[in-house]
């Protein structure tokens, strides 16, 4: 089977570091809500610790550090290499709608380059959500350093934004995984592991690449 390179090793490592730290952040973040005791996760063998706020907070800090470093790395790395093909362009919303329709056999897929219009839009949504989580998370971390008093209402909005955005991030993550399980998206999965994608698939779905 003829293949071509889609993602470099650096891109793949960054992706998986963000993905794995993101999963742990979601788990430890939901642990910071009083959920696991109420919903009996603590009764599942091996998860008795999950309602311990101290443990989930340490996991949250550590994985937040990894996630934040990986996202900052991603931004600066691609900025330095002038790689902007995943950023949204004029007309992407319309083409995304066409692309989503095509996924369900309604019409033709628009002409795509390396990234499809809907991939660029989704990247922007997930990216913005991640940055919001990082900025609000940094403020939350800062105020935890000691006897620091910030404006209570400002902190309230920071906390609400962080918690609500965390929920949105989880839904986006689930949608991302669900989309990859669709039959016509499955050939993209190997490219995130080996870096290579089927040439025939690329010519069909990314003819302008």
């Amino acid at each position: 089977m003829a293949t071509r390179i889609r993602h470099s090793l650096t891109v793949r490592i960054t992706h998986w570091v963000v993905a794995l730290s993101g999963i742990l952040l979601l788990f430890s973040g939901f642990g910071q809500l009083p959920l696991y005791k109420r919903y009996n996760l603590i009764k599942v063998p091996g998860f008795a610790w999950s309602s311990n706020y101290e443990i989930t907070l340490v996991i949250h800090y550590l994985t937040a550090a990894v996630f934040t470093a990986a996202v900052c790395f991603h931004l600066v790395y691609h900025y330095r290499r002038c790689e902007f093909s995943i950023l949204p362009r004029r007309g992407d919303i319309g083409n995304s709608i066409k692309g989503f329709k095509a996924m369900f056999g309604l019409g033709e897929e628009p002409y795509h380059e390396k990234f499809q219009a809907k991939q660029r839009v989704i990247y922007t949504i997930i990216g913005t959500t991640s940055l919001l989580l990082i900025v609000t998370g940094l403020i939350k971390s800062y105020k935890n350093l000691g006897a620091i008093v910030l404006d209570p209402i400002f902190l309230q909005w920071v906390a609400i934004t962080h918690t609500v955005t965390g929920g949105i991030f989880m839904m986006l993550f689930l949608a991302h995984v669900a989309a990859l399980l669709l039959k016509n998206h499955r050939p993209m999965i190997p490219s995130m592991i080996t870096g290579r994608i089927d040439r025939g698939y690329a010519e069909k779905h990314h003819p302008g690449w």
């Binding site: 800090y61 550590l62 934040t68 470093a69 900052c72 940094l138 971390s141």
Partner: peptide, 15 residues
């Protein structure tokens, strides 16, 4: 957990 808090704050610089 101050050490871990500080680590999360310097993470952008590391990245």
């Amino acid at each position: 957990q101050n050490l871990w808090t500080q680590l999360s704050l310097v993470a952008p610089i590391i990245g």
